[in-house]
Design a protein around this nucleic acid. Sequence first.
RNA 1: UGGGGCGUGGCCAAGCGGCAAGGCGGCGGACUUUGAAUCCGUAAUUCGUAGGUUCGAAUCCUACCGCCCCAGCCA
Length: 564
Amino acid sequence: MNDEKIETNARPVDFIREAVEADLQSGRFDRVHTRFPPEPNGYLHIGHVKAITIDYGIAEDFGGLYNLRFDDTNPVKEDVEYVDSIMEDIRWLGYDWEDRLYYASDYFGQLYDWAVELIKQGKAYVCDLSADEVREYRGTLTEPGTDSPYRNRSVAENLDLFERMRAGEFPDGSRTLRAKIDMASPNINLRDPVMYRIIHEAHHRTGDAWCIYPMYDWAHGQSDSIEGISHSLCDLAYEDHRPLYDWYLDQLGIHHPRQIEFARLVLSHTVLSKRFLRRMVEEGLVSGWDDPRMPTLSGLRRRGYTSTAIHAFCDMIGVAKRNSMVDIAMLEYCIRQELNETAPRVMGVLRPLKVVIENYPEDRVEMFDARNNPVDPEAGSREVPFSRVIYIERDDFLEDPPKSFHRLAPGREVRLRYAYFITCTGVVKDESGEVVELRCTYDPETRGGSAPDGRKVKGTLHWVSAAHAVPAEVRLYDRLFTVEDPMGLEEGQDFLHYLNPNSLEVLTDCRVEPSLVSATVGDRFQFERQGYFCVDPDAAEGWLVFNQTVQLRDTWAKIQQRDA
RNA sequence: UGGGGCGUGGCCAAGCGGCAAGGCGGCGGACUUUGAAUCCGUAAUUCGUAGGUUCGAAUCCUACCGCCCCAGCCA
């Protein structure tokens, strides 16, 4: 009687995949072909990754193809620097567009011919209105627009004028080519939208072959059509543009892809807008597009994020039409989860506090076997040197601790990971009263970290042998903004108002275990009890520089906060 | 007051008329030589609100409320 349904648990389902499936079923399309159409005017950020994984992921799921197409229709904003970085980022994500790399600018000739065709059909005209006048004639959200006085020029005149626009006879802004649709449409996009504007500016690919450039709406659908795209997936912002997308394709009678819109990613505590990210770069608020605090792919990569973690994140957030804000904690969870499995463990002291173990022989050095990764037996182990003088983390000692503090304090005993139990017997302070050194004793019976008499200690500390440790620089990062939604601005406020002044902390007096001398740029580690770190490109021969990718979850910090 | 969308626990998100998945976060506990990881347990008598249809609704209908987007010769 209890015939439970069998979970097929196949690919993730969402409304777009359902629609695509239905289109295949109904025969509207017999294959799936998508595209990712970035404008080369900035670096890709995590929000773009969501779009890419939808575009490309769906093509893969349905055994289809996907293209990379640069939407380079505005020479004043675009640059090759960006096309290079975009390709690098997409490849890093693991996608291969093979030979299907295109540029909207490849289609300028075809687009021009189609525009001529629309003019001949009486569906497009050259308009002499200035930008301001166009705006006035457009009407408002509640009032219809009024026809341009140039709306009814003859086909011959339009053809002549358009030809001369192209030939460069007119200055920027003096004329446009407009589609003749409906100035009274409740959808403002249909009130005779501009198809071409005059821009006397060299284009990064076509040079000065053109001085008229197509608008997004005129270029996009036709480009999709030329490439045989089946499903043109985009941001909710383009929902209002779909009628126009459809209109152009219908007038031309060419292959007609289906546009489907989804909600773009909004991530808490950061900003995902090329415009604002560029501003932070230009104003020097961050070190560049690849600053590890940036939500750009190059920033995340430098920070130590892996592409698999980013993919896991995209799977986790889903695809829907609801405007939502994803908690950045989800992203952090994804990278922790992966690094927990893969990152070798290592000991590194960020803020060193000297500890002298008084009953440990002056010249003795022992090697302790340390597991490289407790969750991965295959990872093996390494040796870590121990001696009389060591460094521990300043935060691991409190002179007058609360009972909930499981670490070192006068008279308390803790375990040094993989080494011995030590007990704090004395505190050395400087003139200002600051603790500069601890005196301790160790119990030789606890070698390896456990006591033969079975006594327990609550705390286990990481440490490093003073004589053997290697100095390093560590860069700690925090959220770029102090509030969840930096864009949720108060009246007259700038989003930079919410910039977190403490998003970067550079520690130059760190000490890490000697096994790290051979670490190279990009290597990732877990500094036990602290977090995940990777070697930054700034590292040089003899000087290690680590970026904190993400902290370990910190229950103690939570307890402190709660009790504070 | 035009048009287009969207409203399910703190945050994402399934659900497609038959009796509210899952994940993140939180909380409680177990375990622990990382206060990590792991492991259990835990929260919507309720799906924006109000009506209606139905034996039965988050799912259908109506009205209302709220939020987002659109008046670039940006994309």
